[in-house]
Write a protein that binds this DNA or RNA. Structure first.
Length: 528
RNA sequence: GUCCCGGUAGCUCAGCAGGAUAGAGCAUCUGAUUCCUAAUCAGAAGGUCACAGGUUCGAAUCCUGUCCGGGACGCCA
């Protein structure tokens, strides 16, 4: 809809104008303050300019009126246009708000260490990533999702060691001296018992088995993580193992050397990341020859760029923000355009329950488990709350409030709007198809408003995706539901002389809500 | 000390590629149901947009500085 309007405006106003939605719909459906910016150039008052410009639109059937008000140019869409667009949506409900884009995107998210279950912080990134994927795909982008498994390095050894020691202590009932660093939490003990079942208790007698337990434990944890994700309807296209990438280390290292990106000092190899805006140079190979974590990420990003996507999006926890500069520097050293790599940060989450801090799970070693929260409030509510706030700001919420089944819970509010429409259709004995060909004309303001608001989905999606601001979609769904509820309270549908017109508009609204909800991973209910 | 995020209604937050009277939900108060689900709606009340300068016809929005809160500043991942 916005595209059509933009096209018509370009014809008369040129390329350069800002199209906005007036705060008050009574001004019009769209507006532009172009006269203000032209005022300086033309040395005329904005009012006069707007007045002159408005006359240019007299022959456009898409608008019912184009008015100049206090320097603004306000556009009201015509019934003719709205009806035509409504027909288009009802003919192709599955294609509503779909678009075509050639851009290919590699979206990496979650990528939590396979050393324990997912916690609430991971969940936020997971939900944002998944919804970005759903929306992007709907808009036609070719998106691949990927999970980077940190299965190399010290933390995997620590996992194996923790299981080993827990086995000694709890299965073999031996005295154990715990090191300073290890994974706590009852899930480690569970793993120890499971390992005893699978390999026999003797596995805890020889330290040589730690490696085996590491690898086995990592696989167990990946399965657990996948099932945590599945509980909120998230699946990945690819899983990439850090360990397997090291085969390419020599090759990548040569490339860095060839591009004069590294030097040796104190027996270590450093990346000259300072040259590209990092605070200091970073070690990528230690004195003992073991590559650092950054080395793995360099290989990984080299691998990503070799696969030739147009754009790379990483969703990271905000505690990694200091890491951005060095990875971008590495990408540049590898000869790729670092602007194609975009990092979306997901900030910290604080949870309350009944006004008190949400209890941390002893099972997880004092983290708030994603699975506990899902159990507490349900996947839909969790998804919704995470998506309704900007990703890069702190978020605090109370699970008890999101659990209530009334207006304080936006999900029920939206679901109820969708259910109401379906119940009206059911009561009327008609289907969407029955009202498809009804002509909408002489629409009253309320009808027009509901129809227009329902039509906004495509432009909202585009805006939300391009700015990576998914709260725009949840906000929109709330406001669309509000317009529907208001309409419902003020107009009787069944039995009115406009029954079929109203039903047709309701059908459009339902399609918009259902489509919007599906893109944030929530199924629209037909009855509540 | 450096960097990142934030400071908008009692609470949780939108708005911030400058634009019409700063919004929503919750909480508080008042009202609406013989009628398609009241899981709803209508209305009231609630604001020095942290502070101070600057740019502009116009600033919550952009720039500078200050204050306050959170986070990051590993050869951990």
């Amino acid at each position: 809809m916005k595209k059509r309007v933009t096209q018509v405006l370009k014809k008369h106003l040129g390329e350069d104008f800002v199209l906005e939605k007036p705060k008050d719909l009574s001004f019009g459906h769209y507006a532009t303050p172009i006269a203000f910016s032209l005022a300086k150039v033309l040395r005329k008052s904005p009012m006069v300019i707007a007045d002159e410009l408005s006359k240019k639109f007299e022959d456009e059937t898409i608008f019912e009126s184009v008015e100049a008000v206090k320097g603004y140019l306000n556009f009201k869409l015509s019934d003719e246009f709205l009806n035509e667009y409504a027909n288009f949506v009802l003919e192709n409900p599955d294609r509503f708000a779909k678009d075509e884009n050639d851009e290919t995107i590699l979206l990496e998210y979650v990528s939590a260490n396979p050393t324990g279950p997912l916690h609430i912080g991971h969940a936020r990134g997971a939900v944002i990533g998944d919804s970005l994927y759903r929306i992007g795909k709907h808009l036609g982008y070719k998106i691949t999702t990927e999970y980077y498994i940190n299965d190399a390095g010290n933390q995997i050894y620590l996992l194996g060691l923790s299981i080993f020691l827990a086995g000694k202590e709890r299965v073999l009932r031996e005295e154990v001296e715990w090191p300073e660093e290890f994974y706590r939490g009852d899930y480690i003990v569970d793993l120890a018992f499971k390992a005893a079942e699978e390999f026999g208790e003797d596995i805890f007698k020889d330290e040589k088995n730690i490696e085996k337990l590491s690898s086995w434990g990592k696989d167990e944890m990946m399965e657990l993580i996948k099932s945590n994700l599945k509980d909120v309807s998230i699946e990945f296209d690819n899983f990439v193992s850090e360990k397997s990438l090291y085969e390419k280390w020599d090759e990548v290292f040569e490339k860095l050397k060839a591009n004069d990106a590294v030097y040796e000092k104190d027996g270590k190899v450093w990346l000259k990341s300072t040259l590209y805006g990092d605070e200091k140079d970073r070690v990528i190979v230690r004195e003992d020859g073991r590559p650092t974590y950054l080395a793995g990420d360099i290989i990984y990003h080299n691998d990503k760029f070799e696969r030739g996507y147009d754009r790379y999006i990483n969703i990271w926890g905000a505690d990694h923000h200091g890491y951005i500069a060095r990875v971008k520097a590495a990408v540049k050293f590898l000869g790729y355009d670092e602007d194609r790599l975009e990092i979306v940060l997901s900030q910290m989450v604080s949870l309350l329950k009944g006004g008190e801090p949400f209890k941390m799970s002893k099972r997880a070693g004092n983290f708030i488990l994603m699975s506990d929260v899902v159990k507490e409030m349900g996947a839909d509510a969790l998804r919704f709350i995470f998506l309704s706030k900007k990703s890069d700001t702190h978020l605090e919420f109370d699970v008890d409030i999101l659990k209530k089944e009334d207006s304080s819970n936006p999900i029920y509010y939206i679901q109820y709007a969708h259910a109401r429409i379906n119940q009206v259709f059911e009561k009327s004995g008609k289907s969407f198809a029955d009202v498809k060909d009804v002509e909408l004309k002489n629409l009253d303001e309320d009808s027009k408003n509901l129809l227009f608001t329902s039509f906004l989905l495509p432009e909202i999606l585009e805006d939300a995706f391009k700015t990576r601001s998914l709260q725009k979609l949840t906000d929109y769904l709330k406001s669309l539901a509000a317009v529907l509820h208001k309409f419902y309270n003020e107009h009787r549908v069944i039995g009115s002389d406009k029954e079929n017109e109203y039903l047709k508009i309701f059908a459009i609204t339902a399609i918009s809500i259902k489509t919007g909800l599906s893109l944030i991973g929530i199924e629209a209910k037909k009855r509540m």
